[in-house]
Each structure stands twice: as structure tokens, then as C-alpha cells.
Design a protein around this nucleic acid. Structure first.
Lengths: 337, 337
DNA sequence: TTGTAAGCGTTATCAT
DNA sequence: ATGATAACGCTTACAA
């Protein structure tokens, strides 16, 4: 409740003076480093309290050459990707881990061309101490950029091309196989799939799992239509699929959003789910519980993805060499299959 | 494709030397300021290209006393609030606006006690050039903290207590009235409401709108149950409501998530929607399109909230004095009412 | 243990 | 128009 319009915040020098010690001593006390007598340390701490001193993070960053922040970069044309609660979960996971550290979270949405340039500069300028990169499509230049930028990088999901040393992923192929196997166990023989974008590793891997399961089961029938992980896309894809293959008796959708779309199309088409057409999704997001009927789905631990990516990045920053991580999936049975 | 392990990035001094000019000239050229001859300017620009120079944002921040970032602070115990796509939209809106500036977006989730402290320090240390504050409950200390922190602040939604000079909000009371009026126009007379948290302005305002509409229409019947804006909460609240008031013939839920929950409860209870019980939600999120039946809802321009908050913050940072903004709502009719 | 002084990489002031 | 030089506020050798 001071009424000075904009009083300058105290500097460490002022703290030192007040405490009657040198600035270096004050600095050491502040960061409770060694080589400070008890007496001085306490004097400094007291002065800090009295003056309401808060260290200037920028100055500190300049001196230590550490930015004090990590970036979560979400690539993709459409800023609306964030409407997908998926990312919210990842962010929440990352955030909870970072909260225990001194690092802040910078969120970069690289959508426009200008956005791309800014991300590039962010990397080259080393404006952050580490980077998490998500949802790369095709051979997004961001991957190379990040890798070359001499900054710790962890990928959320393997990028399509090239090997990356550090990533957190989900066992997509296996999850897809679980889904498809489940459908097969329901005696379905004409199982179609709504794939994700086929210029992503996720999209491809889930499709691969689907195909493997069918092959292993000796089922010859297959049909697929590419979607884009949105519900709207799922609707379009399901309509196309149904038109081409009216005899299908099951659908594996590569995520819940598309599965929800498929459900709507099937309902409109008068196909009973699961009686006539069984449907399985992927993700286990909230949406899977509220569709009609509730969705059987392959659950992946999304919150953990964010958490583990962050932990891995912290390890990297700390100079360790963590191993890539592949998180397991579990089939959650509900009513759609 | 250099193979030096970690070559230091060039500094402005090196650029200057290479261009054969003083550092100050180089700086002026870099920021294309005045007082630089064409020749020198070009020489500097060339040197920058050749050396691949990228200015050090930290150093710049220290010199200019500007952080180069703004923070979006989302208060709330549970990091899972982010699972609500609502925030994703706000973030996306903010992000697209910031992309056109030189500011980055810092995301702060103030959940744990430690998180709170960090946010406090962030503010006091002026580690950001401005702050957007969302979803404050009760008399969250964050509001005062931010207001006192001598940093531009815009609020997303008015906080419950106290006046704040700069905020972006939605006309919640009016929206609630629209919803309730619609229900009334359907000749419903026993209209209940699932409120949001009553320690928030949103929660209170929507409840107020509901009550006003009933009063204006001369309808005496009312019934309410408090929820928490989650679907799970909506389910619990709807169950309680239905137990206490089995004769209700309409429900205004203060957001779509709760409305979705209500729909599930009603379905389980064998109440036909909208025939026996009409339901209206609030938000207009994707979820409202996929419930069964699709939800009639009061749509608010969430992406715009993020955009406008950011624009307002930018204006504030630029030294202007923007007016508070209240965005309009529109009723979207679907099948639930 | 203590303090002096030299950075960290910019921008900004001020003579020239 | 130009270029020294002094901030910016902190950390960290190094010397005492």
C-alpha cells in the first residue's frame, strides 16, 4: 500500500549495504551458498525481508547464462488445435512438474509464418534452457532446427523422419492392436479404420497396429479412411467409409474425437452401435465417456506424457542422458464395443 | 552442420568488428534506428547474416528493462482445469495475437503452494511485461498481488470482490437470461438451474440472470444446485436436483460440461429430453454438439476472450488506457430445448 | 570467511 | 553521423 507511483525495486547492492556486507556476500547468502558466516547470512536475510527484495531474474539469467524457462512448442497450422483437450492435459502435466523447479513454462504456438520465425529465433537465441516439441507433421523443419540449436530437446511422439535421441511416446502400434484385437474377439470380420494424419508417426503407427492385428488374425477384409484427429474430420471420414463399405461391422478410430464423429454418422445412418457396428477409439479423454453410447477406447496416460517429457527435459538440462520413454496403453471397455 | 561441439554464438561486438563499425552503430543498425549511414547499416546487416548473429534476448531485456514476455496465469487448485477445452481456446486466442508482436507467452498454473509463491515472485520481480489473470475464485490473493505489483494486469472475468480497472468479460447475466427466457418460451414453468461455483463472478452472474428471467416472467418456481463447471460435478448436482425436485421440467446449466452431465443423469432416469425436461447449457464448446441430444446453449466467443484480453494488455503496456470489454452472447438452438 | 573487480551482451547517453 | 562509455543487476573468479 505504498503510494509512491513507481518506486524502484531494491537491488542486491542496497540489500548488501543495509546488511552491512559486501555485495558478493549478499549474493552468496541469497543463494545460500558457502563461505558466509552465520551472522552475515542472517543479516542479509533480514535486510532482504525488510527491503522486500526480489532478485531480478533477467540480470541473473544474463550472469548465469540460463534463461530460467523451457518452451513447449506446439507445431501446427491451426491455433485451434488447442481446442483439443489433449494438449491441455500435456500442459497441465508439464506445469505440475515445472512447479517444483525454478523454471517457467513458455508456450509457443508456431502457427503463422511469423510464428515460425519467432520460434526459430527463440531456439537460436537460446532464450530458453530446453524445448519440448509436440505434434510434428511430415518433415517439419522445426525438428532439425531444434536439434541443431544446441539446446536440450525432447520430442512428444517420434517425428516421422529421422531418429531423435530423446522422446516420450505412447505405444501406438500396440494400442491399435489392442483395439483391433478386441474387435476381432467380438467376432467382427469387416473391421475398418479411421486413421489419423498419415504424415505423422502416430497416424502411421496406429494404422500399422490395426493392419498387423488383422493380418495376424487372418482377416483379409480391410478398409480405411484418413482423418485429422478432429471430430469434424471423423464425421467426414466415416461418411466416406460407410458409402464405400456399407457392409462394415466394426470401426477402429485412431482417436476419440474421430470416434465420436463416427458414432454420430452411424446414428444418423440408423446403424446400431455396437450391435451392428462396433466402435473403438483411442485416447481415453473425457469425451469418450459422454458419447452415446460411451466409447470403448484405448487409454493413454496423457497427463503422464506431459510429466515425463518435462522430467526428461530436466534430466537433459542437468546433463544426464535419459532413455527414450514409451508409455503403455490400456483398453477401457465401455459400451460401444 | 558445423561440428564444433558448442561454438559460442557471435556477439554484437563481433558483428561490429566484422562490419568495421562501432558497437553502438551496429546496435542502431540492428534495431534500425536513426543516425546510421546507409553504408554502415548495410555493412552491419551483411555481417549479421554472415555471422548468423542473433541478439541475446536476456541481455536486451536487462538493458531495456523489458522482459519480452507476458504471463497468462490460471488460478485454481487442480491442474486438470486445463482439461477443460475452454482454456485451450483462450490460450489459442492469446497466442495468435502475441504472434504478431515480440512478446512471448508464459503460462502459469498456480496450483500448489509453491506455485503460488512462484507466481508472486514472478510479479514482484517484474519477470514479465504484463499479466492476464483468469478464473479467480473467492477473494484470491492473486488479484491484490497482481494489482499491487506495478505491472499491467488484465482480468479474464471480473473477480468477485473489488473493482478492477481492466478486464474482458462476457455478459453472463444476459446470457443466462437468454437461456432461461428460451426455456420459458417453451412453456416450461418449473425451471431449475445447475449453477457454477458461487464464489466466482461467473457463477453468481449466471445464477442472477436465471433468477431475473424467472422473476420477470412471474414464475414462482425455482430450484438450484451448485456445481463446479465439470461434467462430473454436473452429474452429482443433477442427481441431487432430481431427487429434491422430481417435477422439474427444464434445466439451465451454467456451462456445457455440467449440461452434458445433466443429460446423462436424465437419460438414466428415463426422462426424455427435451420432451419431459428441456436443457440449456452455456459456452458453446465442441461438447455441446456431440451430446445426446445436441445441446441448446448460450454461445460465448471464447477465442475472442483470449484475443481481446491480449489486445487489452498490449494497449496497457503501450501506455494506453483501454476500456473494459464485455463480449456478447448468443443463443444457439439445437435439440435439447 | 571476506571483498574487489571483472564479466554477462545489450541499450542509451553524450560528447565529438 | 559516430563512437566511447556508462548503465542494467546479478554471479563468480580471484585476491586478501
Amino acid at each position: 500500500m505504498t503510494d509512491e507511483p513507481t518506486r524502484r525495486r531494491p537491488t542486491l547492492d542496497e540489500v548488501a549495504e543495509r546488511a552491512g556486507v559486501s555485495r558478493s556476500a549478499a549474493s552468496r547468502a541469497l543463494n545460500n551458498g558457502p563461505n558466509v558466516s552465520r551472522a552475515k547470512r542472517e543479516a542479509v536475510l533480514r535486510a532482504i525481508k525488510e527491503l522486500g527484495y526480489v532478485p531480478n531474474p533477467t540480470a541473473r539469467a544474463l550472469a548465469t547464462q540460463q534463461a530460467g524457462a523451457v518452451a513447449l512448442i506446439i507445431s501446427g497450422e491451426d491455433p485451434a488445435v488447442l481446442a483439443d483437450p489433449f494438449y491441455g492435459q500435456v500442459i497441465a502435466g508439464a506445469s505440475t512438474v515445472l512447479e517444483e523447479t525454478d523454471l517457467h513454462l513458455m508456450l509457443c504456438l508456431a502457427t503463422s509464418a511469423r510464428g515460425q520465425v519467432r520460434v526459430k529465433q527463440l531456439l537460436q537465441a537460446r532464450a530458453v534452457d530446453g524445448v519440448m516439441l509436440m505434434s510434428l507433421r511430415g518433415d517439419d523443419p522445426l525438428a532439425r532446427l531444434a536439434l541443431e540449436a544446441d539446446v536440450p530437446v525432447v520430442f512428444g511422439g517420434k517425428p516421422l523422419h529421422g531418429q531423435v535421441p530423446f522422446y516420450v511416446d505412447v505405444d501406438n502400434a500396440h494400442g491399435a492392436r489392442q483395439a483391433t484385437d478386441h474387435l476381432i474377439s467380438l467376432d467382427r470380420t469387416r473391421i475398418a479404420t479411421l486413421t489419423g494424419p498419415l504424415d505423422t508417426d502416430v497416424g502411421l503407427a496406429r494404422r500399422r497396429g490395426y493392419l498387423e492385428a488383422l493380418t495376424l488374425a487372418g482377416l483379409p477384409w480391410r478398409a480405411e479412411e484418413a482423418g485429422d484427429f478432429t471430430e469434424r474430420g471423423g464425421i467426414a471420414a466415416m461418411e466416406a467409409l460407410l458409402a464405400r463399405h456399407p457392409d462394415l461391422d466394426a470401426v477402429f478410430a485412431a482417436n476419440d474425437n474421430m470416434a465420436a464423429g463416427a458414432l454420430r454418422v452411424l446414428a444418423r445412418a440408423g446403424r446400431a452401435v455396437p450391435a451392428e457396428v462396433a466402435v473403438v477409439g483411442f485416447d481415453g479423454l473425457a469425451i469418450s465417456e459422454i458419447t452415446e453410447p460411451p466409447l470403448t477406447t484405448v487409454h493413454q496416460p496423457i497427463l503422464n506424457i506431459g510429466r515425463e517429457m518435462t522430467r526428461m527435459l530436466l534430466a537433459l538440462i542437468a546433463g544426464e542422458r535419459p532413455s527414450p520413454l514409451i508409455l503403455p496403453t490400456t483398453l477401457v471397455r465401455r459400451e460401444s464395443a
